Amino acid sequence: RKEMTAACTPRRRIINLTSVLSLQEEINEQGHEVLREMLHNHSFVGCVNPQWALAQHQTKLYLLNTTKLSEELFYQILIYDFANFGVLRLSEPAPLFDLAMLALDSPESGWTEEDGPKEGLAEYIVEFLKKKAEMLADYFSLEIDEEGNLIGLPLLIDNYVPPLEGLPIFILRLATEVNWDEEKECFESLSKECAMFYSIRKQYISEESTLSGQQSEVPGSIPNSWKWTVEHIVYKALRSHILPPKHFTEDGNILQLANLPDLYKVFERC
């Protein structure tokens, strides 16, 4: 597991931080080997919608929660590849102030007048994250320049770009939802926020969305749709870069829909 690298990086740093090793061990302890084997050997059937997909393993048909699986995938990559990410360069710098204002204007932020003026909160978020810029760049390849612009994001899987519609809320939550006081809790909560931002979430995906850094293989055609990215990038990574937690067998994120021999018997009677 320590050699797990989802995106190509030129050289690998050895990380011996106790906090990170502890988080890696927790993933191992909570892992479910049968689910790992199923995901490793599954045959992708198709997307139901951005949140759900169908896959077959041996004779069984499964309904998989793409949102939760991708979130767990990105969390584990962030923990196992800690401080070893490439950088996704933004085509132009994104001012943190503008991103924070967009987030505060969104109902998702939960902002009320009692929280104070949005401009003041946005300025605080910019200054707060600028103070964390060195650590964010060093460990997470999340790059913020001296003017308070976001200029780079971590490359977690080759050819995958997170849904940038979720970027404003991500920046807001970096400042408000991460435990910045304790090292282990900081790395864990920061990785979880980043994983949620990178995950496939239906509120940020339309039929026209593209999450891939590449064009489709047909010359002159439109960019790959999110469905292509889910199948050929995300579920491909799920084959080798995730140890599913045991609770996925109990919380409805992986559901067995049918045993195909039983279905064949039904059709034979028709």
Rank of each mutant, 00 (worst) to 15 (best):
G252P: 07
C47G: 00
L174S: 02
P245T: 03
L121R: 14
Y124M: 15
I169E: 14
I14M: 11
D98Y: 11
E113F: 09
D115Y: 06
E147Y: 13
V234W: 00
R1C: 15
K246P: 04
V45H: 09
S43L: 11
P245W: 00
I169V: 15
Y160T: 01
A237M: 12
V218A: 12
I205E: 04
S206E: 13
P163V: 09
E231Y: 01
T9F: 13
L63H: 00
A237Y: 06
Q30S: 15
E119V: 13
T67L: 01
Y264L: 14
Q214D: 09
Q256S: 10
R11T: 10
E108Q: 11
Y139R: 03
R12A: 15
D115Q: 10
K192Q: 14
Q203E: 13
E183H: 03
P163A: 13
P154T: 00
E177I: 05
W228C: 05
W228H: 11
I15F: 07
S199G: 03
D251Y: 04
P154E: 00
L21V: 12
F85Y: 05
D98H: 11
A53W: 00
F44W: 07
E29R: 08
E3M: 10
S191V: 08
E37D: 15
I15S: 05
S225L: 08
Q51T: 10
I151K: 11
H247W: 10
Y62W: 15
A100I: 15
D105L: 14
P10F: 10
F44G: 00
V230G: 01
I77S: 03
L153Q: 01
E92K: 15
L255N: 11
G166N: 04
G152W: 02
L96Q: 00
L90H: 02
F197K: 01
G31V: 07
L136Y: 01
T66H: 00
C8T: 07
V234S: 00
E193C: 07
Y198E: 01
I233P: 00
K236H: 07
A100W: 00
E165W: 05
G120Q: 11
T229C: 06
G252Q: 07
L61A: 05
E26G: 09
E146P: 09
K236F: 05
L164Q: 09
L21Y: 06
V48Q: 02
E25C: 09
K60D: 09
K192W: 09
L121T: 13
N16F: 06
K184D: 05
E37L: 07
E177G: 06
R13F: 07
N49Y: 02
K184A: 08
I14L: 12
A237S: 07
V20C: 04
Y204C: 05
I27S: 04
Q58A: 15
I79G: 00
I169Q: 14
G86V: 05
A6T: 05
M196P: 03
L35N: 06
I27C: 14
L35V: 07
G46W: 14
P162S: 02
E71F: 06
Q256A: 13
C186M: 07
P162D: 01
E193V: 08
L155N: 08
N159A: 08
N253I: 15
T59H: 10
C8Q: 12
I14T: 13
I144Y: 01
L190E: 00
A53R: 00
S109N: 14
L61W: 05
L54E: 03
D262W: 13
I125E: 00
M196H: 10
E127A: 13
E33M: 09
A100Y: 02
L17D: 05
K60E: 09
I125S: 07
Y124K: 14
L88Y: 10
P50H: 14
S106I: 15
Q58Y: 07
E127I: 11
G152A: 08
M4W: 12
L136I: 05
F267Q: 15
N84T: 04
K60V: 15
E25Y: 09
A122W: 00
E231P: 02
P50W: 05
L142A: 02
P261S: 10
Q214P: 10
E3Y: 14
Y264H: 15
I171R: 02
P117S: 14
I169K: 09
E72Q: 09
T5E: 07
G116I: 06
F82V: 05
Q58L: 11
E250T: 13
E188R: 11
D98M: 08
D158A: 15
L243M: 12
N16D: 13
E29H: 12
W226M: 02
E182V: 12
Y62G: 01
Y139E: 01
L63F: 05
E127N: 10
L136D: 01
P10N: 08
K246W: 09
N149R: 07
N224F: 14
Q58T: 12
K246F: 14
I254W: 04
S109W: 08
E25I: 05
L63Q: 02
L260Y: 08
V87M: 12
L99A: 09
N65L: 00
I144T: 03
L64Q: 00
P162R: 01
R36P: 00
F248R: 00
F197C: 02
G110F: 12
I15H: 11
L142F: 12
R1W: 10
Q51D: 09
S141W: 00
L121D: 04
I233W: 02
V234P: 00
S191A: 12
D251E: 12
T112E: 13
I200M: 13
S109Q: 11
V20T: 04
P219C: 11
D138E: 10
G31I: 04
M38Y: 03
I79M: 09
E193W: 03
M38D: 01
N224T: 15
E114H: 11
P219I: 12
R1S: 15
N149L: 13
F128P: 03
E108D: 14
L63N: 00
G252W: 03
L129D: 01
Y198A: 02
M196L: 13
E123G: 11
N16C: 08
R173E: 01
E217A: 12
R201E: 01
N259A: 10
Y139Q: 03
K132Y: 05
L99F: 07
R12D: 11
Y160M: 00
L99H: 06
E146V: 08
R36M: 08
L150G: 00
V230Y: 00
L153K: 01
N65K: 02
T176V: 09
L90I: 12
D158N: 13
R89E: 15
I233T: 12
H32F: 09
L17A: 05
G252F: 04
D181F: 12
F267A: 15
R36D: 03
L211Q: 14
Q76D: 00
W228M: 08
N159H: 09
G220I: 11
K265N: 15
P168W: 01
P244I: 03
I171D: 01
A7F: 06
C186E: 03
T9A: 11
E26S: 09
M101W: 06
L238D: 00
R1I: 13
A7P: 05
L104N: 00
I151D: 06
E146Q: 08
I171N: 02
I242K: 02
H232F: 08
F82W: 04
R11D: 07
V126C: 11
I14Q: 07
G116C: 06
E231G: 03
I200F: 13
G220S: 15
L61Y: 06
L17C: 05
K227W: 04
V48M: 08
E113Q: 11
L142Y: 02
H232W: 04
A175Y: 14
